[in-house]
Structure formats: structure tokens, C-alpha cells
């Protein structure tokens, strides 16, 4: 750890990595709670994996892979959303198909592009140390889009996440907002690809939100807490991985995962403690003379 902070003062690429992690945390903190409460983790996973098709095409036709990823993610989100809203097809089958076909198409394009095979690993598992400065700007822009949409339509998004039927009866344009929500999840996936790669995205999207959900009773609080936790995991993972020269992305995920399980255990213990205390209080009432009515 100390080594990491020493290196921070010397290498600007570490600062860029740190900032990339923080920017990605904002996205996963904002959208992760929706993925968790709406139970669309599998759907988000499908979007994340199908993104490889866009990145493969981008390297083949020589344009920015992140732009390719963004287009593929949005197309995948709209496709899955359309199937769920308007089609008779089974949603989970469609997601599974899109998941695998997206990856297959991406790998075919990368295989046909000479000299790009090495990119595949960083697409799949991220390479936070190689985030170029201009991509930080792109990430900040995506964060701003997410934050603005959520601020403007927070009530409506929460209503759609909570109870679609009731929201529809209150005149909320449910289908439009549901598709918008999926597109925003797609944007978040793209935000995180540089940091942890498309395979590990799903963990960073859901784990901070799931931990936050254990301790909060509003979606807004869940977002704030998930963002802070995401920042802790990305920065902490980066710092932990530096000295032993581990890959940063997987270190972040292991950190997030073990925190999640500790949080579950802690919550369970807390509940047992509370039950124990209330039982003890009842027994004390029994023992105290005069408070207990004879049967």
C-alpha cells in the first residue's frame, strides 16, 4: 500500500487510473441500485457481453473501441427491452442468445484483424493502467448524462422500478422509461469496461448496490452509498494490486465480493443480536415483580 502512495507522486498514469476508477464508480453507484432492485442482473450481464461485438467491429474497421462498445450496448439494451415489452419470445432465452452471439461476433472480428489479439484480454478483463486521458473525458461525459437523466426524472424512474402497473395508471410513460433505464445500464457497462473489463462488469455493477441495499431504505441513499463503496473498491483494488503486480480489475472484484459476504454475515449477526436483546428484555419483564399478570 505504502508503495502505491509513493508511486502516485511519481507516475501520472496512476492518477489517471485512479480517476478512471472514481468515474466508473459514479456510473455503477447510480445504475447498480436499479439493476439490483429490478432484478435484471442477468439482463445487464447480457448487455455487457454482447458489447464485444461492437468492440471487435471497431478494431476491424479501425475506429475507437469504446464508441463501438457504446453502440453495441445501446442496440443490445433496446433489443432486450423490445423483446420484454412487445414480443412473445422468452426474455431469458433472448438474453442468453444475445450474450453468446455478441461475444462470438466480437471474437471473429478480432481474429480477422491482424495484430489485435492482445486487445482481447484487456476488453475482457480491463486494463485500468492504460486508460488514455481523452477517455477520462468520455467517461465524465457519460456520467454527466446519467446524472442529468436521473435528476430530471428521478420520481418517474423510481416509480417504474417500484411498481410498473401502478406507475402506468398514474400516467407515467412506463415503456419509454423502461427502455431509457436499460440504455442507461448499457452506458454504465461501457463506463466500466476500461476499468474491470466486460466479464467482471456485472460484479462492480451489483455488489456495491447490494451491500448498500442491506442498510438503506431509499433508492437515493442506496445510490450515494453504492457510489462511495464503488470508489472504495476501485481505489482499494488499484492500491492493493500495485505492489504485488496483480491485475487491478480482478483485485477490485475480489475486494468487492469479500466485502459483500462480510456485510451479509454482519447483517445476519446484527439481526440475531437484536432478536436476542428483545427476548432478554421480555424475560426481564417477566422476572420483575408486579409487571407480570398471573395466568
Amino acid at each position: 500500500m505504502a508503495e502505491f502512495f509513493g508511486a502516485l507522486t511519481q507516475h501520472s498514469f496512476l492518477w489517471q487510473a485512479l480517476i478512471a476508477g472514481l468515474l466508473a464508480s459514479v456510473g455503477c453507484g447510480l445504475m447498480g441500485p436499479f439493476v439490483v432492485v429490478k432484478r435484471i442482473t442477468f439482463l445487464a450481464g447480457g448487455i455487457a457481453h454482447s458489447v464485444l461485438a461492437g468492440m471487435g467491429m471497431a478494431v476491424y474497421f479501425a475506429f475507437n473501441p469504446l464508441l463501438g462498445a457504446l453502440i453495441a450496448a445501446i442496440v443490445a439494451a433496446l433489443l432486450i427491452g423490445w423483446v420484454r415489452l412487445y414480443s412473445e419470445a422468452r426474455e431469458d432465452t433472448t438474453i442468453g442468445a444475445l450474450w453468446a452471439i455478441g461475444m462470438a461476433v466480437g471474437i471473429l472480428f478480432i481474429a480477422e484483424t491482424p495484430g489485435y489479439a492482445s486487445d482481447l484480454m484487456s476488453f475482457l478483463f480491463g486494463n485500468i493502467l492504460l486508460v488514455p486521458a481523452r477517455e477520462l473525458l468520455f467517461m465524465a461525459l457519460l456520467d454527466a448524462v446519467l446524472l442529468l437523466s436521473l435528476t430530471l426524472f428521478y420520481r418517474q424512474f423510481v416509480a417504474v422500478a417500484f411498481d410498473e402497473e401502478f406507475a402506468r395508471l398514474r400516467g407515467v410513460p412506463v415503456s419509454t422509461l423502461y427502455l431509457a433505464l436499460l440504455v442507461m445500464v448499457a452506458i454504465t457497462v461501457v463506463l466500466m469496461i476500461q476499468v474491470v473489463g466486460l466479464i467482471l462488469v456485472i460484479a462492480l455493477l451489483t455488489l456495491p448496490a447490494a451491500i448498500a441495499g442491506l442498510w438503506t431504505s431509499s433508492l437515493a441513499m442506496m445510490m450515494v452509498l453504492a457510489t462511495l463503496l464503488g470508489m472504495l473498491f476501485t481505489s482499494g483494488g488499484l492500491a492493493l494490486s500495485y505492489a504485488p503486480d496483480w491485475p487491478a480489475g480482478p483485485t477490485m472484484i475480489v475486494l468487492a465480493g469479500s466485502t459483500y459476504f462480510l456485510a451479509l454475515v454482519a447483517q445476519r449477526l446484527w439481526q440475531m443480536w437484536q432478536r436476542h436483546m428483545s427476548l432478554a428484555a421480555q424475560q426481564n419483564d417477566h422476572l420483575r415483580p408486579g409487571t407480570h399478570e398471573p395466568d
Binding site: P33, V37, R39, R155, Q156, V158, A159, A161, F162, D163, E164, E165, F166, A167, R170, G171, V172, G213, T216, S217, S218, L219, M221, M222
Partner: peptide, 20 residues
């Protein structure tokens, strides 16, 4: 129609009736 583990208080859930 909602999940019982949704992070929301009673007052905020009732507020949704004011949408629209």
C-alpha cells in the same frame, strides 16, 4: 406488484400516488 425488499418507506410509496 412490487418486491417487498424494495428500499422505500411507507410515506414515499404513498407519494407515488401523487404522480401525474
Amino acid at each position: 406488484a412490487f418486491a417487498r425488499d424494495f428500499p422505500i418507506t411507507v410515506a414515499d410509496a404513498v407519494l407515488m400516488g401523487r404522480l401525474g
